[in-house]
């Protein structure tokens, strides 16, 4: 793996932060495009692990995955550089827009742009699902866990945290039982 300077790392994440519309759920395709396809710094499989972990840790997903990538490339200072990169443009934008909030949400042209971007976010989330789907090992275990998660979320109305906690325990149990069975 090639060494990357902290400044370069900051700038890559500055770009990711600047084009990240619609929140953390759409960051996977963007980060894959920048870090795996263009720069060849981190393999796509690792990014998917980080994304899954980022969803299960407290805080903002986009910041979490950026810090995982930064840490992987340059340790603690890398994590901080990536984090600062990803939040720089958003902070500036909000500070500039804060006083025009009502104008922004009432103008029909801007409203219409909001509308379009809202649809793009759905398309990008489907893209994220597809990326995870293609890059994960889809054995029986994968489908069992997916089904349990969906049932808990949709039918039993579990919150994301409750789902992550409950299903993680179930998943680790299934795998331990499976492992013991194989050993015998």
């Amino acid at each position: 793996m090639k060494q990357i300077s902290l400044l370069k790392l900051y700038l890559i994440f500055l770009k990711i932060g600047a084009i990240l519309l619609g929140g953390g759920y759409v960051i996977l395709p963007i980060i894959t495009n920048e870090l795996s396809k263009k720069e060849k710094l981190i393999p796509e499989e690792d990014l998917i692990d980080y994304f899954a972990l980022s969803q299960s840790l407290p805080g903002v997903i986009a910041a979490n995955i950026s810090m995982f990538c930064g840490y992987k490339l340059r340790g603690k200072s890398g994590a901080i550089a990536a984090m600062l990169g990803v939040i720089s443009v958003p902070i500036l934008c909000i500070i500039c827009l804060a006083s025009t909030l009502s104008v922004l949400t009432e103008n029909i042209y801007i409203k219409s742009i909001f509308w379009g971007v809202g649809i793009a976010v759905i398309a990008l989330i489907t893209l994220t699902i597809r990326e995870m789907w293609q890059k994960s090992e889809r054995d029986l275990f994968f489908y069992i866990i997916l089904t349990i998660s969906l049932v808990l979320l949709f039918y039993f109305r579990f919150t994301p945290v409750q789902t992550i906690l409950t299903v993680s325990v179930i998943g680790v149990l299934i795998q331990s039982i499976n492992k013991r069975g194989k050993l015998k």
Binding site: Q55, I125, M132, I164, I170, G171
Partner: peptide, 10 residues
Amino acid sequence: TLKPISCGLL
């Protein structure tokens, strides 16, 4: 385990 859960959440 987290990967399929993450898919489910998405």
